[in-house]
Design a protein around this nucleic acid. Structure first.
Lengths: 241, 241
DNA sequence: AATAGGTATGGTGTCAGACATCTGACCGGA
DNA sequence: TCCGGTCAGATGTCTGACACCATACCTATT
């Protein structure tokens, strides 16, 4: 075929993006029937097989509903985006709320991992970790309290040029984060964290304990983030198994 | 072809189930390479196109990793199951912890919805709702505080024969729950709930505010569940968008 | 011997076309 | 009015082919 494609990602992903574009731009409204697979494939210039791969994923995500012998429909209730299952850095999260992210450093330095750290990050006793404690701000207000641990060996170029986003730091080190195992816990009080975030009396914090992995399933970051819930809302779309 | 299939679900779903079986039964261990698509298709007696639909979904779920020109591999870290994105009833949840579910009824009755209820459930002013407040127990210990609201019109046969599981009640009414929009909130204290659950001092509860929908995207149940986190753990696999 | 480059092989990615099966609407006769 | 047949159009599945990619191996050059 010798086609020249500017984007090297698989074709079906480009189709997915295009469909999401069309649906979120209001081109197609919720509940309407999409053109037939044959028609869509022709329109996008891909084969029906490729188009179907895209639709299969979209169906799995809940954006479209397919009915045998009838057609493919845009879901009635557009899936709530940015649920907790989507992994954003704290920086990104603050920006998505249209606020300006900032950082107040409390502690940064190398140290030896505890046994629990070693266990979860898969380290030997001698390997050191970069450990930091920070308060993240939105428009100057303290909103998240962060404790992060990164194996020193992961950071080939040290941590110079570090500007607040660990995600970018790890990307620059060639170990971009792909996913995270996250535990969700409510916190009624904490001697250090609550005063630092200036939490009003009676309010609780939401703690996300996260173990982050790179694309090769290697753990690269262990973090505990305490969120003020008057600023951040957490939701998720739960489905019957 | 004129094949007679006992299971009427789409073929690719059966393939998915079979693959999950093989991987969870230890037939295939994490990290190993699966047989080639051609080989697998032959083995399962389906076409490569169908097999690929199954693999596409499994890849999206994170159970397998596909590499162009190399092969398809079982994911190194098996995806954490029963994350918060899977919707279980409280009854099921307690059973999954190998404990015996029970119910202490506090209040059950029909009443008129508040404006917020009407808004979220899509009701008119005159329609009544079935409203109940209950404490769920595990082996007799109070572990979840539940407030539930169901539009009366949904329950065609009334609510006789109700045994504790709203999911089963709605299934019997022909409106089985398909998914729920869930908001996650930490709660530091609540005058009614905390004493009722006998929460130890200093411990917080996790509140899930859920709007449940049936398969036709119609809201059928609005619930607020307060969970004791010494009994329930909530986790989720978050992925980069 | 070490290394750079070509080639063979076997994997996934994409395509085109065909037939099977399901659904809803239309239509005509009891 | 009701019921069954028919038909069009949609998704579900299959087949066979070729393109593209990654790796292993071989070869020629250094």
């Amino acid at each position: 075929m010798n086609h020249i494609r500017p984007d090297t990602r698989p074709l079906y992903m480009l189709v997915i993006d295009r469909i999401k574009e069309l649906s979120s731009s209001g081109e197609w409204s919720p509940g309407t029937r999409l053109p037939s697979e044959f028609e869509l494939a022709k329109q996008f210039g891909v084969s029906r097989a490729t188009l179907r791969e895209a639709l299969r994923v979209l169906e799995e995500e809940g954006l479209v509903v397919r009915r045998h012998g009838v057609g493919t429909f845009l879901a009635e209730r557009s899936v709530v985006r940015a649920g907790i299952e989507q992994l954003f850095s704290v920086t990104e999260w603050i920006e998505r709320a249209n606020r300006v992210p900032g950082t107040v450093e409390k502690q940064v330095g190398e140290m030896l991992p505890t046994e629990q750290d070693r266990d979860r990050l898969g380290l030997s006793e001698r390997e050191s970790i970069l450990c930091m404690t920070r308060i993240r701000t939105a428009d100057g207000d303290p909103v998240v309290y962060c404790e992060d641990r990164i194996p020193t060996r992961v950071l080939r170029h040290g941590w110079r040029g570090f500007d607040g986003s660990l995600f970018e730091l790890l990307e620059a080190a060639g170990r971009p984060i792909a996913y995270a195992q996250t535990e969700i816990k409510p916190v009624a009080y904490h001697d250090t964290v609550f005063p630092a975030l200036d939490v009003p009396a009676g309010e609780a914090l939401l703690l996300l304990e996260q173990l982050h992995f790179d694309a090769n399933d290697q753990p690269v970051l262990l973090s505990s983030n305490y969120f003020r819930t008057d600023t951040f809302h957490f939701h998720v779309l739960r489905r019957r198994p």
